[in-house]
Simulated assay, not measured.
Amino acid sequence: MMAVRGLGIGRLGLWLQGRQPAAQNMAPDIPPGRGPLLVVQASADARLAFSQVQRRLARLRPDLRILEVGHLSPPAAQALMAARPAALLLLGADLPAVLVTAAGRAGLPVVLAEARLVADDAAWRLRALGRRELLRHMRAVLVTDPAAQATALRMGAERGRVALTGPVTEIRDPLPCSEAERSVMAQFLRGRHAWLAASVPASEEDAVLAAHRAALAQSHRALLFLAPADPARIDPLAERIEAEGLVVARRTLDEDPADEVQIMLTDGPTEMGLWYRLAPVTYLGGTLSGDDAAARHPFEPAALGSAIVHGPRTDRHATEWQQLGGAGAARQVADADALAAAIAELSQPDLIATLASNAWRVSTGGAQVTMRICAEVLDAIAAGQP
């Protein structure tokens, strides 16, 4: 009896959602062409996912016509269905009642991806009951995290239609470098503990140099690749390092990291693909002080197998840092002393390998999730075509 009552209230909630004012009362213009039509609605929190899915689908199915729509009125949704789309893809937290209902009436397969369902979605309030009813129309529900997966199941989605994919993350191609240059440089590094401090602002130079002294105490042949955020700092830094009794080489002078060299000053932000490949450990500058105007994206070293160390100031690229931290893919340090301790500790290959492997999985996971969404969409299109 309760299930029947819940279903009726759910339909009432669905009806009320459908009567809410819509932003668009006219049917959208249909893209020209003869290929199948995919209708997409993406919520504000899923713009990155839409961009990446759209690009990948265009490569996989060049004849596919992709139409992004906003919230439609019932007449506009019905007019859109008259164009005989092949499938509907929803990205993000929104479940547009009018569009999903129209798709259901037209027998259109619906895929919900990047679904960030929350606990309130499984409540027994009117709005939540309406969302439960909408979820019954989904051919596939691809969720971002275990909590969203549990919520989808509590909402009544069939277990076989719910899949935990993780979130779509930014896909960044690995930075390039000259393989000949990398090979030559690698000859100098055999048996040495090397690490990179990338885009280091002047405010963090003391902390980075202190961390390298700690690394030298752990391994007297340790080598630091130091990339100042401001290339104008290269010559003053070289003079300071030499005055402190350390041996320095400068990339700008075409010098090599010979065995006696303890710090190699790179030429600032250039050739980062080379340094990430050579250094098993990377500290990303700006994250200790918050002086991060020149901060590098954390997926850069992650995609090239370099373990990442960072400070607490991660407002820039906050989402990516959160993903790395949640996967145990980066080492956060609180201050300069903790940075020194972490760099010294990360001379152990097994610790480096674990961090680097986890980081690589996170940085490349966006491509895998995007492909999973695209596969579901193409299956839905095949199912929706006569």
Score class of each variant (00 low, 15 high):
V69A: 05
R56D: 13
V69C: 05
A82S: 14
L89N: 05
L95G: 02
E114D: 11
V53N: 12
Q41T: 04
A86W: 00
A87V: 11
A46L: 02
Q52N: 03
L112D: 04
D94M: 02
L37I: 08
L95Q: 14
R47H: 07
A44H: 08
V111A: 04
R47F: 00
L91C: 08
L90K: 06
P62L: 13
L67F: 10
L117P: 05
E68I: 04
T101Y: 08
P75F: 00
V53T: 10
P32A: 15
A82F: 11
G33H: 02
Q54Y: 03
A83N: 06
S73F: 00
A102N: 07
L88M: 05
M81T: 00
R84F: 03
A49Q: 07
L64S: 09
L57T: 08
A103F: 01
L48P: 03
P96K: 06
V69N: 03
A102K: 05
R84A: 11
P75N: 01
D45G: 14
R61S: 15
A58K: 15
L90V: 12
P62M: 15
L48F: 02
A77Y: 00
A87Y: 01
L67Q: 15
A46P: 07
A44G: 13
A58C: 09
A119D: 15
P85G: 07
P85Q: 08
A119M: 06
A79G: 10
G104F: 04
L95P: 02
